[in-house]
């Protein structure tokens, strides 16, 4: 038995290492591509990074600072060195380091994205399960419709519609501008997530204000990803329900709930976990649009403000940080998959 434990631990460690090793090329690819993007700027990159109003001397300054007067390999070396030091350049509009500004704004974006994912999962998984257990029922048809309509929704449009209906017409939602009504001061920063920090602060009123503010943008984002999650849950649950091992579970007389939840659902969620990678891709992309619609002070609107001002360092930094975050999220998903599926841990 001890030998077995040991083998399991070894397999687990091997699995983690393999996943890490698989994530590395992706991270490297992301770095190379973002580097190439900084060189792809039409015209003179130095002029772009220096900003529209820069003098000739300023441009030369930037050129030297970025190493643009060196060979491409050397430039990449500089780029890597800066990255390792956490240096993403400075924003021209604010004059502050991009890295600092991104870090300040990242919690707002993450909070929005994660709440949306949570919301979408809480709705989509039960919906998919209901649809699969009652094929042909109203829920099943609803699930199909949502799956097709959901992915057809332009998030920026649904966001506006929701704001119109729930703010302008019904007055249920606060004005769609920002994370918190200016009448409140933000909770003391613990996690940077206002919802959690407001909980820590034990301030009910503040919590309600924060929740009210995040509700519409989170719902907007969630609506978009309910479709892929429910579709996947339904398909995978249908497959699992007609599988041999569910038949066995029924044949030995296990109760319906046990068959559904312990035997079928746990297995059905495995492919759903795998699609979370794609879901995150959608979420992170759409969050830019939603942040713009709701004036959400996250990294997306930061990048957009910079874009309008032709301030490129923040945009490049944003792309890099989001891509790195995405690689990291995929790694977490992979590791989580290994926790729930023993087969993944043992694969060579």
């Amino acid at each position: 038995m001890n030998a077995q434990r040991l083998a399991a631990v070894r397999a687990g460690a091997g699995f983690v290492l393999r996943r890490l090793a698989a994530a590395l090329p992706n991270l490297l690819g992301v770095v190379v591509v973002t580097f190439l993007l900084t060189r792809a700027l039409p015209g003179d990159p130095a002029a772009y990074f220096a900003g529209p109003a820069a003098s000739r001397e300023a441009i030369e300054e930037v050129r030297r600072a970025l190493g643009l007067d060196q060979g491409i390999a050397t430039q990449f070396g500089f780029y890597l060195r800066d990255l390792v030091q956490g240096d993403l350049g400075n924003s021209i509009s604010t004059g502050r380091p991009v890295a600092t500004e991104l870090i300040e704004r990242l919690p707002a974006s993450l909070e929005l994205t994660l709440i949306a994912l949570l919301l979408a999962t809480l709705i989509a998984v039960p919906l998919g399960v209901l649809a699969a257990t009652r094929p042909g029922s109203v829920v099943d048809h609803l699930c199909r419709v949502i799956a097709t309509v959901g992915v057809s929704l332009p998030t920026f449009f649904t966001g506006l519609l929701l704001a119109y209906v729930f703010y302008f017409l019904l007055g249920w939602a606060p004005p769609p501008t920002g994370r918190l009504d200016p009448a409140f001061s933000p909770p003391q920063t613990v996690t940077g997530f206002y919802l959690i920090d407001a909980l820590f602060a034990l301030d009910g009123e503040l919590l309600a204000a924060v929740a009210g503010q995040i509700a519409l943008p989170a719902i907007t984002l969630a609506l978009f990803v309910i479709a892929p999650i429910s579709r996947m849950t339904r398909a995978s649950m249908l497959g699992v329900l007609s599988s041999d091992f569910v038949r066995t579970a029924r044949a030995v007389g296990l109760s319906r709930t046990r068959v559904l939840y312990v035997y079928a659902l746990r297995n059905a969620l495995l492919p759903v976990v795998t699609t979370l990678g794609m879901v995150f891709s959608f979420l992170l992309g759409s969050s830019i649009l939603v942040e713009k619609v709701f004036a959400w002070p996250g990294v997306g609107s930061y990048a957009l403000e910079a874009l309008v001002a032709s301030d490129y360092a923040p945009v490049q930094g944003f792309v890099l940080v989001l891509a790195a975050l995405y690689v990291l999220l995929n790694l977490v998903i992979d590791l989580a998959y290994g926790v729930v599926d023993p087969r993944a841990r043992f694969e060579g």
């Binding site: 599988s243 041999d244 091992f245 038949r247 066995t248 579970a249 312990v262 035997y263 746990r266 297995n267 495995l270 729930v340 599926d341 023993p342 087969r343």
Partner: peptide
């Protein structure tokens, strides 16, 4: 092999 729950 298919008749047993693969993750239990």
């Amino acid at each position: 092999r298919a008749a047993l729950n693969p993750i239990r």
